[in-house]
Design a protein around this nucleic acid. Sequence first.
DNA 1: CTCCTCTAAACTGTCGACAGTTGACCGTAG
DNA 2: CTACGGTCAACTGTCGACAGTTTAGAGGAG
Lengths: 240, 240
Amino acid sequence: MNEFNTRLIKKVQTQSLTGVIYNQLEDMILTGVLKPGERINESRLSALLQVSRAPIREACRQLEKHGMVQIITRRGTFVANIEVSEVKELYDIRASLDALAAEKAAVYATAEDLDDFRQILMIMQDAIAADDAKEYFRANIIFHRTIVRISGNKNLDALIEGIYNKASLCRKTNLSLPERMSISYRQHRHIFKAIEAGNPMEASTQMKHHVIDARDALLNSLDSSDVKRDPGAGARLAQN
Amino acid sequence: MNEFNTRLIKKVQTQSLTGVIYNQLEDMILTGVLKPGERINESRLSALLQVSRAPIREACRQLEKHGMVQIITRRGTFVANIEVSEVKELYDIRASLDALAAEKAAVYATAEDLDDFRQILMIMQDAIAADDAKEYFRANIIFHRTIVRISGNKNLDALIEGIYNKASLCRKTNLSLPERMSISYRQHRHIFKAIEAGNPMEASTQMKHHVIDARDALLNSLDSSDVKRDPGAGARLAQN
DNA sequence: CTCCTCTAAACTGTCGACAGTTGACCGTAG
DNA sequence: CTACGGTCAACTGTCGACAGTTTAGAGGAG
C-alpha cells in the first residue's frame, strides 16, 4: 500500500500534495475506513503517506470546510459524526435551498434549459422502465444540479454541495429506494411543469415538498430496516 | 503598532496564535485596510506580526471557510471581491434560510422564548423612540439569532453567519437606514405574531418577505446615492 | 477496591529553511 | 511598435524540528 501511494503521489504531484491527501482522506471517510468520531492522527498519517505534516494539516482544514471533519484546537481533527436527527435538519436546509433554486429557475429558464429538463426526464423514464435505480439516481443528481445552475446563484452551488456531503457522512443515507422511483419521477415532472410555466411560487413549493418527501421516505426505511449494510456503493457522487 | 500587536499576541497566547491572527485579518478586511481583490502576502505579514507563516496560513484557511477570502493554489489568498449582484444573491439565500428558521421556531418556541421576543421588540421600540439606529441594529441581530436558536437546527447558525459575513464584505451594505426602522419593526412584529400563534407557514412567509424587503431597500439606496452599477437592477428587483 | 495525583508519552501548534512554481520584466525578432 | 521568448525575483508549498498542552496510565491514599 505504501508503494502504491507513493507512486500515486508522484504521478499527480503537479496538482499539489494537499489535493492528493484530501482526496485520499475523503475516500477513507466516505468508504468508512475512517469511522465517524474517529480521530485523524497527523503524525501517523504523515508517516504512512510519506509526507510531512503540513499538507496533511491543510487537507484537514479543507475537509472541515466541506463539513466532513471537525477540528478542535489542541485536541485534533475528528471525522464528523452525523446523527440521524442531524440528517433530518440537513434535509430541511437542502429543501429550502433547492426550493430557492427552483424558484429562480422558473424565472430564468430558457428554451434550451427546458429541453435539457425534457431530456433528463426521459432518461429517468427509461431508467424506471429498465428498473435501473443507479441510472435513475444519476439522472436525479443531474436534474437538481441543472436547476441550481439555471438559478444563476453562484453561492447556492457550493452551499448545497456542502450540505449534501455532510449528509452523505451518515452512510445509511446512501441507500437508494428503487420502489420510490415512480413517485420521485412524478414529483420531478411537477417541478418541471412549474418551471416550464414560469411559475416560481409553484416550482418552489413543489421542490420543497419533493425533498422533504424523499427525506421522510429515507428516514422511514431506516426505522424499519436499521441494521442493514449497504453494498450498493454507487451512491458516491462525481462532483464538480 | 508592532509593540501593540506583540503585547496583544502575548496576552491571548493561551488561545492559539492562529485565532489572534484570524481576528486581526478579519478586522483588517472588514475595516477596509485590506481591500477587496487585494492579495494577502504571507511572508510580509509574518514579518509584520512577528510570527512564522504557519499560523498565518491557518488563519487564511479559516477566513476562506468563512467566505472572506479566496485561496488559489500557488497564487495566493485574495480578499473576496463581492459585487452588488452577488449581494443580491446572498440575500436570497439568507431569506430562504431565515424563513426556514422562522418556520421551525413557530413550531418549537416555548413560553420563555416568546418572552425573549417581547423583550427584544421592546428594546427595538425604545431604540426607535430614541432614534438610535445603532441600538436598533443590535437588537435586530439578536432577534434573528434568537429565531435561529429556537429553530434548533444547529447547522443553520453557521451557514447564516457565513452568508452574513460574506455580504458584509461589500462595505456599502453596512450602512444603516434609520428611516426604515419603523417599517422593519412592524415586520418583526408580524413575524413574532406568527411564531406566537404557532403558525409556521405564516412565520416563514413573513420572514422571507422581511429579508427581501430589507435587501431591496438597501440596494435601492445604493442605486440612488452611488455609482450606477446595473441599470436593470431596480426593475429586476421589483419582481421579488 | 476506588478515587485522586502526578508523571510521562503522544500529539498539536509553531518555527525557520528550502525547493518548485508563478508572474513580471527585459530583450529580441518581426 | 508589437509580439514572443527567456531570465529572474518573489512567493507559496513542503519539510523536519522544537515547545507547550493534553491525555492516559502508574502509583499512592482512603
